[in-house]
Simulated scan of single mutants.
Amino acid sequence: MKNLFVYGSLLFPEILEGLTGKLFKTSDAILHGFKRYAVKGADYPAIVENTSSKVKGKIVSGVDEKSMQTITYYEGDQYDIVPLKIVFENDVIETFVFVWNLEQDDLETQDWDAKRFEQESLPYYLTEVVPETVEEFRRIDFRASLG
């Protein structure tokens, strides 16, 4: 089981549950040394290293391997999944986080707006993006299991 730090669309438990079919325990957390930006032409964010910044998000606890694979597929190949240590509740825990791996020119200068995402994009994600992602991942996973 793994811990995952989330800072964008996965902050919404209904997206996480839609992707994995599971409810996970989440806790508010802060990731130091990174900055969050809106991605140009998209409704989701990215984070990049920035020693003087921090990102508010949540730690998702107890993520099983299959759920992690589904979430990684959902996030896409423009992110690297990076293991990091986060200070959390006076302890240091191992967690994974999706870090932007493309050019910073692809990012806006401002932060991503969670309220705007909730109002403008969340319903579309729940009715279209999440179900399509799950179906695509199942097809790929099924083909891989055939050898």
Rank of each mutant, 00 (worst) to 15 (best):
V48M: 07
K35F: 00
D106P: 02
V97I: 01
I86N: 09
E89R: 10
N50R: 09
E108M: 06
T133G: 13
Q69N: 13
F5D: 08
R143N: 12
F142Y: 04
L23Q: 02
V92I: 12
T26V: 05
V97K: 03
K22G: 13
K54W: 10
I86G: 08
R116K: 14
V63A: 03
T133V: 02
W100Y: 07
L16G: 06
E135K: 14
D141L: 10
K56M: 14
E49M: 01
N101H: 03
D77I: 13
I59W: 06
S145V: 05
T26D: 05
E136R: 07
V134K: 04
T20D: 00
E120S: 12
P13V: 04
T109Y: 07
V134T: 04
V60R: 02
E94V: 04
K25Q: 09
T127V: 03
W112K: 10
S52D: 15
E65N: 10
G147S: 03
E120V: 09
R139C: 13
L146W: 05
N3T: 09
L107T: 07
L16N: 00
L102D: 11
E65T: 14
V130K: 05
K25L: 12
N3P: 00
A46W: 05
V87E: 13
E120Y: 08
Q78R: 14
E136V: 00
K2V: 12
S27P: 11
Q110T: 13
I140C: 08
P123N: 10
Q110V: 08
Q78Y: 13
R138N: 14
R139V: 12
F96H: 13
D141W: 13
L102I: 00
Y79A: 06
I140N: 00
Y7P: 11
A42H: 09
K35G: 02
L23I: 10
L19D: 01
F34C: 11
S145P: 06
Q104K: 13
F98T: 00
D43A: 08
S145H: 14
E17V: 04
H32Q: 15
I81G: 07
A42R: 07
Q110F: 08
K40A: 00
E94W: 01
A38D: 10
F88W: 00
M1Q: 12
I86A: 02
K115C: 12
Q69C: 02
E65H: 07
D106S: 13
I30T: 09
K85A: 13
E17G: 00
V48H: 04
K56I: 14
D43I: 02
V97F: 01
L11K: 11
D80F: 09
